[in-house]
Design a binder for these strands. Sequence first.
DNA 1: TTGTGTTTTATTGCCTCC
DNA 2: GGAGGCAATAAAACACAA
Length: 280
Amino acid sequence: MESGRLYFDTSACRGNNNMLFLGNAELAFRGRSMMSVEEASKRRPFFTSPDELYDEDYYEEQLPEKKRRLTSEQVHLLEKSFEEENKLEPERKTQLAKKLGLQPRQVAVWFQNRRARWKTKQLERDYDVLKASYDSLLSSYELIAKENEKLKSEVVSLNEKLQVEVKEVPGETLSDKKGDPLAVDNMVPIFSTKVEDHLSSGSVGSAVVDEGSPQLVVDSVDSYFPADNYGGCVGPIERVQSEEEDGSDDGRSYLDVFVASETQHQNHEALSWWSNMYYG
DNA sequence: TTGTGTTTTATTGCCTCC
DNA sequence: GGAGGCAATAAAACACAA
Protein backbone atom coordinates (compact mmCIF):
# COMPACT_ATOMS: atom_id res chain seq x y z
CA MET A 1 0.00 0.00 0.00
CA GLU A 2 1.16 3.43 -0.89
CA SER A 3 2.46 5.58 1.90
CA GLY A 4 0.65 8.74 2.73
CA ARG A 5 -2.66 7.63 1.32
CA LEU A 6 -5.39 6.34 3.54
CA TYR A 7 -7.28 3.40 2.16
CA PHE A 8 -10.57 2.51 3.51
CA ASP A 9 -11.21 -1.02 4.63
CA THR A 10 -14.19 -2.40 2.74
CA SER A 11 -15.17 -4.52 5.67
CA ALA A 12 -15.29 -1.43 7.84
CA CYS A 13 -18.24 0.27 6.17
CA ARG A 14 -20.25 -2.89 5.74
CA GLY A 15 -23.81 -2.94 4.63
CA ASN A 16 -25.15 -0.89 7.48
CA ASN A 17 -23.52 2.15 6.00
CA ASN A 18 -25.02 1.46 2.64
CA MET A 19 -28.42 0.19 3.42
CA LEU A 20 -29.87 1.44 6.64
CA PHE A 21 -31.75 4.38 5.25
CA LEU A 22 -33.55 2.31 2.67
CA GLY A 23 -37.02 0.85 2.84
CA ASN A 24 -38.20 -2.48 1.48
CA ALA A 25 -39.11 -1.04 -1.89
CA GLU A 26 -35.61 0.19 -2.38
CA LEU A 27 -34.19 -3.10 -1.30
CA ALA A 28 -35.89 -4.73 -4.25
CA PHE A 29 -33.78 -2.63 -6.57
CA ARG A 30 -30.32 -3.92 -5.96
CA GLY A 31 -27.85 -4.76 -8.62
CA ARG A 32 -28.48 -2.71 -11.72
CA SER A 33 -29.41 0.88 -11.40
CA MET A 34 -32.15 0.69 -14.00
CA MET A 35 -34.39 -2.34 -13.75
CA SER A 36 -38.01 -3.23 -13.34
CA VAL A 37 -39.54 -4.53 -10.13
CA GLU A 38 -40.01 -7.92 -11.81
CA GLU A 39 -36.40 -8.05 -12.83
CA ALA A 40 -35.25 -7.04 -9.41
CA SER A 41 -37.37 -9.61 -7.67
CA LYS A 42 -35.75 -12.40 -9.68
CA ARG A 43 -32.37 -11.51 -8.31
CA ARG A 44 -30.82 -12.36 -5.04
CA PRO A 45 -31.52 -9.53 -2.67
CA PHE A 46 -28.88 -8.48 -0.19
CA PHE A 47 -31.47 -8.64 2.55
CA THR A 48 -34.47 -10.89 2.52
CA SER A 49 -36.24 -9.21 5.40
CA PRO A 50 -36.10 -5.83 7.11
CA ASP A 51 -34.88 -7.55 10.27
CA GLU A 52 -31.69 -8.52 8.54
CA LEU A 53 -30.92 -4.86 8.17
CA TYR A 54 -30.40 -4.54 11.86
CA ASP A 55 -29.03 -8.00 12.48
CA GLU A 56 -25.42 -7.67 13.56
CA ASP A 57 -24.84 -11.37 12.92
CA TYR A 58 -25.84 -10.88 9.32
CA TYR A 59 -22.90 -8.58 8.76
CA GLU A 60 -20.57 -10.79 10.70
CA GLU A 61 -21.53 -13.80 8.60
CA GLN A 62 -22.10 -12.35 5.20
CA LEU A 63 -19.97 -9.34 4.65
CA PRO A 64 -16.31 -9.78 5.46
CA GLU A 65 -14.26 -8.89 2.39
CA LYS A 66 -17.35 -8.88 0.17
CA LYS A 67 -17.89 -6.12 -2.31
CA ARG A 68 -21.26 -4.47 -2.14
CA ARG A 69 -22.92 -2.73 -4.99
CA LEU A 70 -24.34 0.68 -4.38
CA THR A 71 -28.09 0.99 -4.27
CA SER A 72 -29.95 2.50 -7.19
CA GLU A 73 -30.71 5.51 -5.06
CA GLN A 74 -27.07 6.02 -4.23
CA VAL A 75 -26.10 5.61 -7.85
CA HIS A 76 -28.82 8.00 -8.92
CA LEU A 77 -27.58 10.68 -6.57
CA LEU A 78 -24.00 10.14 -7.58
CA GLU A 79 -24.96 10.37 -11.24
CA LYS A 80 -26.78 13.61 -10.59
CA SER A 81 -23.79 14.99 -8.80
CA PHE A 82 -21.50 13.83 -11.59
CA GLU A 83 -23.63 15.63 -14.14
CA GLU A 84 -23.20 18.85 -12.25
CA GLU A 85 -19.45 18.50 -11.96
CA ASN A 86 -17.34 15.47 -12.75
CA LYS A 87 -14.53 16.46 -10.43
CA LEU A 88 -14.95 16.13 -6.73
CA GLU A 89 -13.63 18.73 -4.36
CA PRO A 90 -13.08 17.58 -0.78
CA GLU A 91 -16.05 19.43 0.67
CA ARG A 92 -18.48 18.00 -1.83
CA LYS A 93 -17.03 14.57 -1.34
CA THR A 94 -17.65 14.73 2.38
CA GLN A 95 -21.16 16.06 1.92
CA LEU A 96 -22.03 13.41 -0.62
CA ALA A 97 -20.58 10.67 1.52
CA LYS A 98 -22.64 11.82 4.48
CA LYS A 99 -25.78 12.10 2.41
CA LEU A 100 -25.32 8.64 0.90
CA GLY A 101 -24.08 6.91 3.99
CA LEU A 102 -20.83 5.97 2.30
CA GLN A 103 -17.19 6.47 3.09
CA PRO A 104 -15.69 9.52 1.36
CA ARG A 105 -13.20 7.16 -0.21
CA GLN A 106 -16.05 5.20 -1.82
CA VAL A 107 -17.45 8.40 -3.29
CA ALA A 108 -14.04 9.33 -4.63
CA VAL A 109 -13.58 5.89 -6.14
CA TRP A 110 -17.01 6.02 -7.70
CA PHE A 111 -16.20 9.35 -9.37
CA GLN A 112 -12.86 8.02 -10.52
CA ASN A 113 -14.47 5.01 -12.16
CA ARG A 114 -17.28 7.11 -13.56
CA ARG A 115 -14.81 9.44 -15.23
CA ALA A 116 -13.06 6.44 -16.73
CA ARG A 117 -16.36 5.12 -18.09
CA TRP A 118 -17.22 8.52 -19.47
CA LYS A 119 -13.89 8.76 -21.21
CA THR A 120 -14.32 5.36 -22.83
CA LYS A 121 -17.75 6.33 -24.13
CA GLN A 122 -16.42 9.63 -25.34
CA LEU A 123 -13.67 7.92 -27.30
CA GLU A 124 -16.25 5.64 -28.89
CA ARG A 125 -18.36 8.62 -29.86
CA ASP A 126 -15.38 10.45 -31.26
CA TYR A 127 -14.48 7.42 -33.31
CA ASP A 128 -18.02 7.20 -34.70
CA VAL A 129 -18.03 10.88 -35.60
CA LEU A 130 -14.67 10.63 -37.26
CA LYS A 131 -15.67 7.53 -39.18
CA ALA A 132 -18.90 9.14 -40.38
CA SER A 133 -16.88 12.14 -41.43
CA TYR A 134 -14.46 9.99 -43.35
CA ASP A 135 -17.21 7.98 -45.05
CA SER A 136 -18.96 11.15 -46.06
CA LEU A 137 -15.80 12.67 -47.44
CA LEU A 138 -15.00 9.49 -49.29
CA SER A 139 -18.35 9.45 -51.04
CA SER A 140 -17.89 13.09 -52.00
CA TYR A 141 -14.50 12.25 -53.35
CA GLU A 142 -15.84 9.37 -55.41
CA LEU A 143 -18.57 11.56 -56.82
CA ILE A 144 -16.13 14.26 -57.77
CA ALA A 145 -13.74 11.75 -59.30
CA LYS A 146 -16.56 10.37 -61.43
CA GLU A 147 -17.56 13.85 -62.49
CA ASN A 148 -13.95 14.58 -63.29
CA GLU A 149 -13.76 11.56 -65.57
CA LYS A 150 -16.92 12.64 -67.29
CA LEU A 151 -15.63 16.16 -67.85
CA LYS A 152 -12.35 14.83 -69.16
CA SER A 153 -14.09 12.71 -71.76
CA GLU A 154 -16.19 15.71 -72.69
CA VAL A 155 -13.01 17.69 -73.23
CA VAL A 156 -11.62 14.92 -75.42
CA SER A 157 -14.67 14.87 -77.63
CA LEU A 158 -14.76 18.67 -77.82
CA ASN A 159 -11.10 18.70 -78.79
CA GLU A 160 -11.78 16.19 -81.53
CA LYS A 161 -14.52 18.43 -82.84
CA LEU A 162 -12.18 21.40 -82.62
CA GLN A 163 -9.51 19.61 -84.61
CA VAL A 164 -11.98 18.93 -87.32
CA GLU A 165 -12.91 22.62 -87.41
CA VAL A 166 -9.25 23.68 -87.40
CA LYS A 167 -8.60 21.52 -90.40
CA GLU A 168 -11.38 23.34 -92.13
CA VAL A 169 -9.90 26.78 -91.21
CA PRO A 170 -6.70 27.42 -93.21
CA GLY A 171 -3.69 29.08 -91.50
CA GLU A 172 -4.29 27.70 -87.97
CA THR A 173 -2.13 24.84 -86.74
CA LEU A 174 -2.37 22.48 -83.77
CA SER A 175 0.73 24.08 -82.23
CA ASP A 176 -1.34 27.19 -81.59
CA LYS A 177 -3.21 25.24 -78.94
CA LYS A 178 -0.25 24.85 -76.59
CA GLY A 179 -1.56 27.20 -73.99
CA ASP A 180 -5.10 25.91 -74.25
CA PRO A 181 -6.28 24.68 -70.88
CA LEU A 182 -8.91 22.60 -72.57
CA ALA A 183 -6.30 20.53 -74.39
CA VAL A 184 -6.23 17.13 -72.71
CA ASP A 185 -2.44 17.10 -72.83
CA ASN A 186 -2.36 20.25 -70.78
CA MET A 187 -4.69 18.96 -68.12
CA VAL A 188 -3.38 18.26 -64.67
CA PRO A 189 -4.63 15.06 -63.12
CA ILE A 190 -6.76 16.03 -60.15
CA PHE A 191 -6.83 12.72 -58.34
CA SER A 192 -4.12 10.20 -58.70
CA THR A 193 -4.72 8.03 -55.66
CA LYS A 194 -6.94 5.00 -55.89
CA VAL A 195 -9.95 4.88 -53.64
CA GLU A 196 -8.91 1.48 -52.32
CA ASP A 197 -5.81 3.07 -50.86
CA HIS A 198 -7.96 5.01 -48.47
CA LEU A 199 -9.93 1.99 -47.41
CA SER A 200 -6.94 -0.10 -46.52
CA SER A 201 -6.21 1.60 -43.25
CA GLY A 202 -8.27 0.71 -40.24
CA SER A 203 -6.94 3.48 -38.08
CA VAL A 204 -8.43 6.88 -37.69
CA GLY A 205 -5.12 8.61 -37.68
CA SER A 206 -2.95 10.03 -40.35
CA ALA A 207 -2.76 6.80 -42.33
CA VAL A 208 -5.90 7.78 -44.19
CA VAL A 209 -4.31 10.98 -45.31
CA ASP A 210 -2.58 10.55 -48.57
CA GLU A 211 -0.91 12.89 -50.97
CA GLY A 212 -3.32 13.91 -53.64
CA SER A 213 -6.34 12.70 -51.78
CA PRO A 214 -8.97 14.65 -49.95
CA GLN A 215 -8.33 15.01 -46.28
CA LEU A 216 -10.36 15.55 -43.18
CA VAL A 217 -10.13 19.00 -41.79
CA VAL A 218 -9.41 18.36 -38.15
CA ASP A 219 -9.18 21.30 -35.83
CA SER A 220 -6.59 23.77 -36.96
CA VAL A 221 -4.63 21.35 -39.07
CA ASP A 222 -4.14 22.60 -42.60
CA SER A 223 -6.56 21.11 -45.02
CA TYR A 224 -5.95 19.77 -48.45
CA PHE A 225 -8.99 21.77 -49.47
CA PRO A 226 -9.11 25.41 -48.54
CA ALA A 227 -11.90 25.04 -46.03
CA ASP A 228 -13.28 28.54 -46.59
CA ASN A 229 -13.09 28.16 -50.30
CA TYR A 230 -14.41 24.72 -50.93
CA GLY A 231 -17.92 25.63 -51.87
CA GLY A 232 -19.11 25.04 -48.32
CA CYS A 233 -18.57 21.32 -48.58
CA VAL A 234 -16.44 21.19 -45.54
CA GLY A 235 -17.83 22.61 -42.40
CA PRO A 236 -18.23 22.00 -38.73
CA ILE A 237 -20.74 19.36 -37.82
CA GLU A 238 -22.98 19.36 -34.81
CA ARG A 239 -21.60 17.43 -31.92
CA VAL A 240 -23.18 14.15 -31.01
CA GLN A 241 -24.91 14.71 -27.72
CA SER A 242 -25.89 12.06 -25.27
CA GLU A 243 -26.57 11.61 -21.62
CA GLU A 244 -23.04 10.39 -21.15
CA GLU A 245 -21.65 13.71 -22.17
CA ASP A 246 -23.15 15.67 -19.37
CA GLY A 247 -20.29 15.06 -17.04
CA SER A 248 -17.56 16.31 -19.26
CA ASP A 249 -15.04 18.81 -18.04
CA ASP A 250 -15.89 21.56 -20.43
CA GLY A 251 -18.57 20.04 -22.58
CA ARG A 252 -16.14 19.56 -25.42
CA SER A 253 -15.39 16.42 -27.32
CA TYR A 254 -11.89 15.06 -27.65
CA LEU A 255 -12.04 16.07 -31.26
CA ASP A 256 -13.46 19.06 -32.98
CA VAL A 257 -14.23 17.36 -36.19
CA PHE A 258 -15.23 18.81 -39.49
CA VAL A 259 -16.92 16.72 -42.07
CA ALA A 260 -17.84 16.95 -45.68
CA SER A 261 -21.43 17.58 -46.48
CA GLU A 262 -23.32 14.86 -48.26
CA THR A 263 -25.61 17.07 -50.27
CA GLN A 264 -25.57 16.99 -54.01
CA HIS A 265 -25.80 20.75 -54.07
CA GLN A 266 -22.61 21.13 -52.18
CA ASN A 267 -20.87 18.54 -54.27
CA HIS A 268 -21.65 20.58 -57.32
CA GLU A 269 -20.33 23.66 -55.62
CA ALA A 270 -17.16 21.77 -54.93
CA LEU A 271 -17.02 20.78 -58.52
CA SER A 272 -17.34 24.41 -59.55
CA TRP A 273 -14.49 25.22 -57.25
CA TRP A 274 -12.33 22.60 -58.90
CA SER A 275 -13.37 23.76 -62.34
CA ASN A 276 -12.43 27.30 -61.47
CA MET A 277 -9.10 26.14 -60.19
CA TYR A 278 -8.21 24.32 -63.35
CA TYR A 279 -10.08 26.04 -66.07
CA GLY A 280 -10.10 29.55 -64.72
C1' DT B 1 -26.96 -25.36 -12.79
C1' DT B 2 -22.97 -23.94 -14.84
C1' DG B 3 -19.81 -21.68 -17.77
C1' DT B 4 -18.73 -17.37 -19.74
C1' DG B 5 -18.85 -12.56 -20.71
C1' DT B 6 -19.82 -7.91 -18.81
C1' DT B 7 -20.18 -4.40 -15.30
C1' DT B 8 -19.06 -2.43 -10.99
C1' DT B 9 -16.26 -1.62 -6.97
C1' DA B 10 -11.80 -1.27 -5.18
C1' DT B 11 -6.58 -1.34 -5.16
C1' DT B 12 -2.00 -0.27 -6.78
C1' DG B 13 1.55 2.35 -8.78
C1' DC B 14 2.92 6.23 -11.12
C1' DC B 15 2.54 11.09 -12.25
C1' DT B 16 1.60 16.04 -11.58
C1' DC B 17 0.66 20.00 -8.93
C1' DC B 18 1.07 22.96 -5.05
C1' DG C 1 6.18 15.39 0.52
C1' DG C 2 1.23 15.04 0.56
C1' DA C 3 -3.05 15.04 -2.11
C1' DG C 4 -5.43 13.76 -5.82
C1' DG C 5 -5.80 12.21 -10.75
C1' DC C 6 -5.36 8.45 -14.07
C1' DA C 7 -4.30 3.78 -16.18
C1' DA C 8 -4.14 -0.84 -15.37
C1' DT C 9 -5.82 -4.47 -13.01
C1' DA C 10 -8.22 -7.71 -9.60
C1' DA C 11 -12.15 -9.57 -8.05
C1' DA C 12 -17.02 -9.62 -6.76
C1' DA C 13 -21.55 -9.17 -8.62
C1' DC C 14 -24.42 -9.79 -12.18
C1' DA C 15 -26.56 -11.32 -16.91
C1' DC C 16 -27.51 -14.78 -19.87
C1' DA C 17 -27.23 -18.71 -22.93
C1' DA C 18 -26.99 -23.67 -23.10
